[in-house]
Design a protein around this nucleic acid. Sequence first.
DNA 1: ATTATATACCTAAATAAATTAGGTATTATT
DNA 2: AATAATACCTAATTTATTTAGGTATATAAT
Lengths: 112, 112
Amino acid sequence: MGMNSMLKGSLQTIILNLLENNSQMYGYEITQKVKELSDGEVLLTEGALYPALHKLEADGFLETFTQVVDNRVRKYYRLTSEGGEEVRNKLKETEAFINQLQVLLNLKPASK
Amino acid sequence: MGMNSMLKGSLQTIILNLLENNSQMYGYEITQKVKELSDGEVLLTEGALYPALHKLEADGFLETFTQVVDNRVRKYYRLTSEGGEEVRNKLKETEAFINQLQVLLNLKPASK
DNA sequence: ATTATATACCTAAATAAATTAGGTATTATT
DNA sequence: AATAATACCTAATTTATTTAGGTATATAAT
């Protein structure tokens, strides 16, 4: 399997969180940022990224605008206000998830 | 979505780890243990559990034996030696995964 | 007595999210 | 001239799950 496969289900949260920290990013930039932040260990494939971005946009959490740089089109994404709320919810969910996982795997004692 | 959906990809690790701590368990017992350990928050559905157990057995990580208690058949699972190795690998992978996720979501600073 | 809940196993169809493996096109490097 | 990097995309396949059943016995509640 490998560690990458476990990010399943966390991809949306990662994208939303990056956009909270950066205000606007384009797809390719997101793949590079994830690679950089994870020290080259997490490789976000485009086949996963672009459908995820399109879904987040369709759900109203992201909005887009394009910009041309060096004759190449960049499609920028930024959070909508609904997206901002969604980030907070997803982060809480993820923290709870990590906590449960650590308890279930005896990686830390259960919090009372 | 909900937190449960994020356990995707961690189910095998959870099962293997429980069997390392308990030496032998049957399916229904596993669902109850997960429920108990997570304070009722993680509900392992049988449609996920049984196929996962069968796969782990097919992969040689688990072995089974049956026992009849009160006219009901229980199918017990225990780790094989290969399964023991697999637990250790999966736990390391999961710790790395949690670490990366926390870094990517700014839940903790990157470790140097 | 009957019904519902708990115990105990299982599978098949549908869904969701990813991987794999393409495709297009421009710019920069070797 | 060829390759790698930048930049977007999609379609087929795979994998893991949810949903929704099914079977059967034991126990608790009405």
